[in-house]
């Protein structure tokens, strides 16, 4: 970034979450343009492509969340059973190396190694990934497959939103303008249970997903007692695959029909043609990836 770009925003670097919440609340009340920045891996790109500010226009305030201690940390907590709490500001690099994540949330660890490249992984965060709301977000697909709970904090307090109720449309969510995504709570996967992370990109690194498939399952007596799955780049929001989940949870694995599975995946997704891929390819890959994982679970699809 060159010196000429520096006038595009002003920067605030709060040192603690209450300070950040107060600042944000004040900005929202005054109606002045405000940006939240976690790792900046999306935001700086967007700022770089934004049209120039008009002469004399007031640049937005960018609130840097990357130094808030409350957004860090990965720990085991108890909330309706065991959960792993992941700070929204934990970088992918830290996530992928964390022993607790590797052991209890292997999908998340694997995804963290696949996203962007080393520089993106060092800066990027799950909170930022969810906040910017791209339907192609890999981290969000991983959260969705785990039915993560999203923790939001503001001067009004803290609230918890189940993932299924978080996204409301393309780059829209239930997050209020004065709220900061502070953490996620995920149910650990039973040791040895099957999971799948498959990112289909145009290259091995630095690729936005054409399709990504995240899934976890816990099996018992020939059935899935837990099955969570999601896809990126397959709908205007992260696809949480309700029909597919219902089919898998409601059918003994041995009796699962491949074509019924294909129909469920098709019903759950609405792929498009865009710069990165085609509708036909995405539809095909989504079916194939879902079948591949179900075969791993013992279904004859």
């Amino acid at each position: 970034m060159s010196v000429a770009d520096l006038a595009r925003y002003e920067l605030a670097v709060p040192r603690a979450l209450p300070e950040a919440c107060q600042l944000l609340a004040a900005r929202v009340a005054s109606g002045e343009p405000t940006l939240l920045c976690a790792g900046g891996t999306d935001l700086l790109v967007e700022l770089g492509m934004a049209p120039p500010l008009g002469a004399g226009a007031r640049p937005p305030l960018c609130v840097d969340l990357s130094r808030l201690p409350e957004l860090g940390g990965v720990e085991r907590v108890d909330r309706d059973g065991p959960r792993i709490r992941i700070g929204a500001g934990v970088s992918y690099l830290a996530l992928g190396r964390h022993a607790l994540v590797e052991g209890a949330l292997p999908l998340l660890a694997r995804m963290s190694h696949d996203i962007g490249g080393p520089t993106i992984q060092a800066r990027g965060t799950l909170g930022g990934n969810l906040a910017t709301g791209s339907p192609a977000a890999d981290g969000v697909a991983a959260l969705a497959a785990h039915d993560a709970t999203v923790v939001l904090t503001s001067v009004r307090g803290e609230r918890r939103v189940p993932f299924a109720g978080f996204q409301t449309g393309y780059k829209r969510s239930v997050r209020q303008a004065d709220e900061i995504i502070t953490a996620f709570e995920l149910e650990p996967l039973a040791p040895g249970s099957p999971w799948c992370w498959r990112k289909v990109g145009a290259r091995q690194a630095q690729a936005i997903s054409k399709v990504a498939f995240a899934a976890v399952a816990e099996l018992e007596g020939g059935r899935a007692r837990r099955f969570g799955a999601a896809m990126a780049s397959m709908a205007p929001v992260t696809a949480t695959l309700p029909a597919t989940r219902a089919l898998v949870l409601g059918t003994p694995l041995a009796g699962l029909d491949g074509e019924a599975l294909d129909r469920a995946v098709a019903a759950d997704t609405s792929p498009i043609d865009d710069i990165r891929s085609t509708r036909a390819y995405r539809a095909h890959a989504a079916r194939a990836l879902a079948r591949g994982f179900l075969r791993e679970l013992g279904a004859a699809v």
């Binding site: 290259r203 630095q206 690729a207 936005i208 990165r276």
Partner: peptide
């Protein structure tokens, strides 16, 4: 439509 490093896809070291 793709005048950017992110969508004009050259191989990376991993490729």
């Amino acid at each position: 439509l793709n005048p950017r490093l992110t969508n004009y896809i050259v191989p990376t070291a991993l490729d």
